[in-house]
Design a protein around this nucleic acid. Structure first.
Lengths: 263, 263
DNA sequence: CCTTGTGAATCTATTCACAGCG
DNA sequence: CGCTGTGAATAGATTCACAAGG
């Protein structure tokens, strides 16, 4: 049973907290931009849509750096959250699939501002190879195996002696997703974020997470239907959920077998 | 305290279950395509990365339509999940922002195949107005107020007497997000899905959900750092989380005040 | 014999409430 | 005083384990 807290205090950080940290971070940055030097748990809670006690509990897991009677120093808080999340450094990211979604991600402020540096973008379509997209140029998928030799990779302060980007992002059509995943694993990528609507199989040492952009919409659909069933006007008000998922992650065991296999 | 179950049985469906339903749905559809007529909770659980008992509990909330000794009829299961989610009909959706993300969503199979029909796509950039994107053409943002008069809207079997799309999706730069939200609310849109990295304020009767594509990556960063801290090789294996969030939803109260306001 | 459906047990997350510190 | 940090209390979600059905 591994799993220990993140930074100074040896506390274990629960998954639920990990998922709220980016939310707090974003709010703190907005508040900083608005000129505030300190934030109270009350403020953060209001903006994040959660209970103030939860904010305090979450933040206390990163260490005790609030000031009683005042709140948290916004700038310091932001840096501590980043440290806990491990985004106080640059993570090189390779994106496969230069369609609209891939391009959107490569260009997204969220990626670049949070320490995710896209070092390569691949596509199989000769028509887009060579296109400049944000900081990179679309490479032919066949070059994927050269991921380790990337120039750009050297620019990053050699992150942690990584020979290849730690993170691969798949934004291909679902038909190509498994092959791409296999090849990413083959070159040594340690974690994969899959946007293709397809269940993938990877070795157990590879961290695999899924994002399905339509799940949020489906959850919305549920609550809209709900509201209708209770008659117009009875919109579910603040009975509504606050944090929500968009993904699924299968365990390693026999996933492919089940999809493809006879008994 | 409203909130009742979704379909036949009067049971209340917990948020956690609602978020897993789209996951099951997707898997069932994949299995159907692979030619399977029935699914067991065990199979479903393996592919979704959750416990089989949880699958059964989740599905039992939609009614008891499994067959003991056999499993669930895949096609029927899919239809029941859709009904529970309220996607057994078409939801008209308006997307604002025809950048890469907006285009990706409009074209996404996930949207169209799950009953979300994009009836309008708006942008402010004259350079892209008129571009065909999937089933629609980019309209000038100034036409947003005409949302109610849309031809396409009439095509849909008048969903539920809705005068305007029930769902608005914001994929603009964050600087424009609040104004767009205000205008969507102004024309009567009842729920908004915001991809812009900005906290928004809407009246309490409007359902607002957020998606931040970088949150998943940040959660990954956390677990990668974790793994490193425990030394290479000690990758956190199946201690890893399975379902995860990408959003935040603030409560209505004084959100704007807090961001902008003096005490 | 296999798999569902579900009460009871467990585990996890959230909220309360207050002592303690700046 | 006001606000953090946190034990204790509560609520909620997950897993166990098994009775019952096809």
């Amino acid at each position: 049973m591994p799993q220990v807290g993140s930074g100074s205090p040896g506390r274990r950080i629960p998954e639920a907290t990990v998922e709220r940290l980016p939310v707090y971070q974003r709010i703190v940055v907005e508040l900083l931009r608005a000129g505030m030097a300190t934030v109270s748990s009350e403020q953060l809670a209001g903006l994040a849509g959660v209970n103030a006690a939860m904010v305090r509990k979450d933040l206390s897991l990163l260490g005790s750096f609030g000031t009683r009677g005042t709140g948290y120093d916004a700038a310091y808080l932001a840096s501590q959250i980043d440290r806990a999340l491990g985004v106080d450094r640059e993570w090189p990211v390779a994106v496969v699939g230069a369609g609209n979604l891939g391009r959107a991600l490569v260009n997204s402020e969220g990626f670049s501002s949070r320490g995710f540096r896209v070092v390569a973008l691949y596509d199989i379509d000769p028509g887009v190879i060579g296109d400049p997209v944000g900081p990179v140029v679309v490479r032919p998928l066949d070059d994927l195996e050269d991921l380790a030799d990337l120039d750009d990779l050297a620019d990053i302060g050699d992150v942690s002696g990584e020979p290849v980007p730690a993170i691969g992002v798949i934004t291909t059509p679902s038909s190509a997703a498994q092959e791409v995943a296999d090849r990413l694993v083959g070159v040594g990528v340690r974690s994969i974020l899959n946007f293709a609507p397809r269940v993938l199989v990877v070795p157990p040492h590879v961290l695999l997470r899924y994002v399905d952009l339509s799940i949020e919409l489906q959850v919305m659909s549920f609550y809209l239907s709900q509201a209708e069933r209770h008659g117009p006007g009875s919109i579910v008000e603040r009975e509504l959920p606050v944090l929500h998922s968009v993904g699924l992650t299968p365990t390693a065991e026999g996933v492919g077998d089940q999809v493809l296999g006879a008994p």
